[in-house]
Every structure is written in structure tokens, then in C-alpha cells.
Amino acid sequence: MKLKKIITPVLCATLFATALPAAETNEAKPSKKSVITAMRVANDYFMNKWSDPGQVIPYPSRKKNYEANLWTRGYYFEGLMDLYEVDPQQRYLDYAIEWGNKHNWGLRGTKNGVLPRNADNLCAGQTYIYLYQLDPKKPEKYITAIRSAIDSMMATDKIDDWSWIDAVQMAMPIFAQMGNLTGNKAYYDRAYDMYMFTKTKHGDNGLYNPKDSLWWRDADFDPPYKEPNGEDCYWSRGNGWIVVAMARMLDLLPEDEKHRKEYETMLVSMCKALKPLQREDGFWNVSLHDPSNYGGKELSGTAMFIYGMAYGVNHGLLDAAEFSPVIYKAWNAMVKDCLHPNGFLGYVQGTGKEPKEAQPVTYDREPDFDDFGLGAFLMAGSEITKMK
């Protein structure tokens, strides 16, 4: 999320209808116009469906409603802000600001004034901080809660919070944002310490397997846990969260920040490990090392992987000749096979922690939350538009 426009917080009353682009084929480079058109179609569908960004999200099977500042919606707004960077329409900012206002710029999980540490509940803060930095008036209300939550974590020595790998993306970039806001490098150091605990300490010997350059989702999937074919269980979207987090950190941190090399190495290693696992149709399976375990097209992990790959290509970390065909093949497949004419995105695995969750994943099935898959799609497309 770079910074471009000045905010004028007036909500646009009408969302633009956009024609669905013709899908590209195979590894052909999609035009920037077609990528932006696809993102607009998907995003307009969502913004029309959720015209009130503060509306609670019903979850009938659990007989409860979720506040719309939970992690799934927070991740969507990360993607929306990336879309804004390449398609700077004021209505995207207005929608994000209304979302923040509807929640009083607060964090889900706050109880009796006690702010959360849980990474999922911090995720909304990434967009809060982005909007604060973008607004020349710097409304302190945008960041009061997220700053206090992070500072309360900094006031302790606890670094073992991120016991599941999704958490690395939900919260780690916020520490980089806070370091940038304040100039205090301690935030960068704390992010690194917490990440390294997840990498090397959680579970038996950390959640990262250097042999395969992939991550177990949490300690439940450490060896001796195996997939049906005897391989380690590497969940697609779980690894996608790490890929996204590495790219986000590299985008946020100063060029001379001492921990950058770790994040660069991790991003490159993972992308190289993921490349040969791409399916012939352009997608990745939900189980990266066992295509027979609920194999099939899946958008969220696929979009996260090509976001990281596109970032790597755009910043000289990955060879364009080697990775561009992988990226284009996946993007074209998502547009062709997932994007409905009305903007609905199919083949999104619902929430969970492993391949068997929220199955079957199909073209028509709506996931339990329809926002995080769109966030991944918008982030991937936005980064692809920057490719030369």
C-alpha cells in the first residue's frame, strides 16, 4: 500500500457497472486494462452486496453474527487499498473510511477496555493505519486503538503469540507500519522476534520446514502428522499467508532494515518451492504435497502465491522469465474459471485450517465469508498490473 490521493470522505452513492473482460489464455500476459476490469467486476459485486460496510456478517450454521471488522473483512480492505493504488477511485477510500467509522476504528475482541493481542483481531489495523497515513489531517481516532494494542504488546516480553501461520500476515505488517509511523526500530525488532518464534519454536522445532521451504499450519500438523499419501501436510492458504506477509514486510520496511534479508530469502525460497507444485490448469491444490487430498481448483491460496511472486519479480528478487508465465497462467485461470459474469468469485475454500475444511470447493458454492478471497484476488491483480 503506497500513498497517493488525498481523502475526501464523501461516500459515492452509485457503484459503476463494468463489463466482464474476456479471459486470456494459458501463459499470455494479461493487459493491465483487462486485469483492472476483472478486479472492478469482482469488487463492484461485493460493494453492492455489502453496501453498508458496518453490517454484521451472519453465520447461520453457528447461530451467530460476526462484527464486520474481523480478520476476513480486514484482509478484504487490504486488497481494496491495493486496488486503489492502481485504480484510484475515491469511492474505494470512502467505503473504507465508512467501514472504520462504523466500528469507531476499534478492534474486534476488545473487552471492558482491554485491547486484543490475538492477531486475527488486529488485522483491521493495517487498513486503519494506511488511511491515517493517507489523510493529510491525520485523524488520531483512526489509529488510537491499534496503536494502543500494539504498544501494550510491546510493553511485555511475550513473543509466542503467533502459534498459527495465518497470524503472521494478520499482525506482523502492523509492527512495520508502527515503526514507520514512529521511527522506533523496536517495532521492527519485535516483529522479527515473534516471527522467528513461529518459524523455529512453535510446535516441535518451529512451523517452518527448511527441507521443503514450506510451513505447517500449526503444531497439529507437525510430523508425525501425514497426508493420506504419506507426505507432510502443507495447506495452500496457510502458506499463502506467509508469502503475503513476506512481501508486505519488504514493501513496508526501510531498505536498510537489518531483518530484510530474512524476509527476502523466505519469499524467494517459498516461491521456488511453490512453482513446480502449480497445477496444469494454473491453480494450486489446497494440499500442496498431496493432490489426491481434496485436490482441485482453489482461488485464495493461488492468488496469494502469485501476489508474492509478482512482488518478487517487480522488485528483482525473482527471475521474470521464469516466474511470469506461472503468474499469468494462474491469473488467467482465476479470471476464466472463478470470476462469474456478475462478479462473484467461485472456487474459494471457506475458513478453516487444513485441506478438508469447507469442502467441496466449487464454482458456485459461496464460502462462509465472501471477503478474504476477494482481498487475495485484488492484491494479486494489483501487483500484476505493475509487471513490465
Rank of each mutant, 00 (worst) to 15 (best):
Y307S: 08
Y84C: 02
D368I: 12
T265N: 15
Y76D: 07
L299Y: 05
L378C: 06
K63F: 10
I129C: 12
F344L: 12
N285Y: 02
A191G: 13
N209G: 04
K201C: 13
A303Y: 04
G179C: 09
M334C: 07
V114N: 12
D193F: 10
E24V: 05
I129S: 06
A186E: 15
L11G: 00
T362Y: 11
K201M: 14
N65T: 15
K211F: 08
M249F: 10
L93H: 08
Q126F: 09
N285D: 14
T302E: 00
E27M: 11
V244Q: 13
G79H: 09
F221C: 10
L70Y: 14
N229M: 03
G346S: 13
D251F: 06
N332V: 05
I57Y: 08
Y84S: 03
D160E: 11
R237W: 11
S152E: 14
E67W: 09
E322Y: 07
L378T: 09
D251T: 11
L339Y: 07
M266R: 13
L339Q: 07
E27C: 13
W331C: 02
R190A: 08
L267K: 05
N69C: 12
E255I: 07
L15P: 04
Q278G: 00
M379Q: 10
D189Q: 14
V326T: 15
N43C: 15
S152P: 07
G352L: 05
E140S: 13
I146F: 13
Y234N: 10
L207Y: 03
G206L: 02
A380R: 01
M387A: 12
A145H: 13
P9E: 14
T302Y: 01
D251A: 14
K185D: 08
L318A: 07
V41E: 01
G125R: 12
E357M: 13
L252H: 08
D256I: 10
G381W: 00
Y142P: 00
G343Y: 04
G312A: 02
C271K: 10
D189C: 03
I129A: 08
A333V: 00
K199I: 03
R365Y: 12
F283M: 00
L250I: 06
W216F: 15
I143K: 03
E262R: 13
W71I: 04
V41L: 01
H259I: 06
L378V: 09
P53H: 06
A303V: 02
A19Y: 02
M170E: 03
D204Q: 14
G54C: 10
S324G: 04
P223Y: 10
L214E: 02
H340L: 08
W284C: 00
V335S: 01
E98D: 12
V244A: 15
F175H: 11
F344G: 08
R260Q: 15
G54P: 07
T362M: 07
N285R: 04
N112M: 07
D160P: 03
N112K: 13
Y328L: 06
T18P: 01
R40V: 00
F175P: 09
V56N: 12
Q177C: 06
G312T: 03
K138E: 09
Y132C: 08
D337T: 02
W99Q: 12
R248P: 01
H103S: 09
R279K: 11
F372R: 06
N342C: 06
N43I: 08
N209H: 12
E383H: 11
D232E: 14
D281G: 00
A303T: 00
L378S: 08
